[in-house]
């Protein structure tokens, strides 16, 4: 018995969400009286042994260069091999693009019940029950997994990272896996930038900013805070900002520690993508804007006046 966590990478480095998933796996292992282990696939610039800091005892590494390109079929095969070696009966992924691509396949391959978008530790007092986000963050479901092996994907920023001391044993594996059926032609990642889904602070702009020429209000504040930028759907639909910045029900769902919404009305479909944020700040000139009902802090005022003042204050207080 063990709890196995998939360690995901971005641009050759272990993702922050994987530190969180490892911390979560470690806690589940403690709950079940067993140990947590990891599986890392492809070349890495990081030291897999350092995952011991998040509670992993052992990390299986399939570092053959041919695995550096993502293919959910191939990755499922490698992870299934690690599951067998590790004797895992709980397998944890981050609920991100790669996690969501592999977990369903693995669930079928192992005939293991799947819960995606978990927001808390499983309740193991009577069976195995995982709380997950449903209705785009508007409710939670408590899902009972009936199989002996379970696959869970953990929502970003739902559990947190627990860092302590420790070093993991690194075990090289070279499973024999069928050739990939998918050819990766091109990978375009934003170098050196935090992906929106991993960002701790997000500054977001809506139609209230009137046009793309005013986006320096958003980007200046984001730069001062070290934040990623996002936008509402009409903003990306109008081509003011790229599509990957669109958050909401039909865009990316995010859960940063701080979400600052500027000139966004707070339509229900927008809230569905950001309502898991820890703290929400709303800047809107309309006191009746629905977003204020979902906010923790707010300023009723003209963004063109207020936002530069906030940016200045951030620079002053952080500088």
């Amino acid at each position: 018995m063990s709890v196995l966590v998939f360690i995901d990478q971005h641009d050759g480095h272990i993702k922050k969400s994987s530190f969180e998933a490892a911390s979560y796996a470690f806690k589940i292992a403690q709950q079940l009286g067993t140990q947590a282990e990891g599986i890392l696939i492809g070349k890495t610039n990081d030291d897999p042994a350092s995952l011991g800091k998040y509670g992993l005892k052992k990390v299986y590494v399939a570092s053959d260069d041919k695995y550096s390109q993502f293919d959910d079929g191939v990755y499922t095969g490698i992870i299934a091999e690690a599951v067998a070696q590790s004797g895992a009966n709980v397998i944890v992924f981050s609920n991100n693009f790669n996690g969501k691509a592999i977990a369903p396949r693995l669930s079928v391959r192992l005939k293991a019940g799947l819960v995606t978008g978990a927001v808390a530790l499983p309740d193991t007092s009577n069976g195995f029950v995982v709380k997950k986000s449903v209705f785009s963050g508007k409710a939670f479901a408590n899902v009972s997994v009936k199989t002996d092996t379970r696959v869970i994907t953990l929502n970003g920023n739902a559990y947190g990272v627990n860092e302590t001391e420790g070093s993991a044993e690194v075990v090289s594996i070279s499973p024999s896996i069928a050739e990939s059926k998918v050819r990766v032609k091109e990978v375009n990642v934003l170098k050196g930038e935090v992906p929106l889904s991993e960002a701790e602070i997000v500054v977001s702009g809506g139609r209230g900013l009137k046009g793309p020429e005013n986006w320096n209000l958003v980007t200046d504040l984001a730069a001062a805070l070290g934040a990623a930028t996002a936008c509402s759907r009409p903003v990306s639909d109008s081509g003011w900002r790229p599509h990957h910045e669109h958050v909401g029900q039909t865009g990316l769902a995010i859960a940063p520690n701080l979400y600052i919404a500027i000139g966004i009305s707070g339509a229900i479909q927008h809230l569905a993508g950001v309502n898991r944020s820890k703290v929400i700040v709303v800047i809107n000139k309309d006191p009746e804007a629905p977003f204020f009902k979902a906010a923790d802090y707010g300023i009723v005022g003209d963004a063109f006046e207020v936002v530069p003042k906030i940016t200045e204050a951030v620079k002053k207080l952080k500088g």
């Binding site: 963050g137 508007k138 409710a139 479901a141 408590n142 309502n275 923790d296 005022g301 906030i310 200045e312």
Partner: peptide, 24 residues
């Protein structure tokens, strides 16, 4: 393989703390 046992709604927000524009 799985079964929903029950649903919960998130705890309501505490209410927004407002600042005046000059209190940035």
């Amino acid at each position: 393989l799985t079964e929903i046992q029950s649903f919960d709604l998130p705890a309501p927000k505490q209410g927004v703390k407002l600042f005046a524009p000059e209190q940035a």
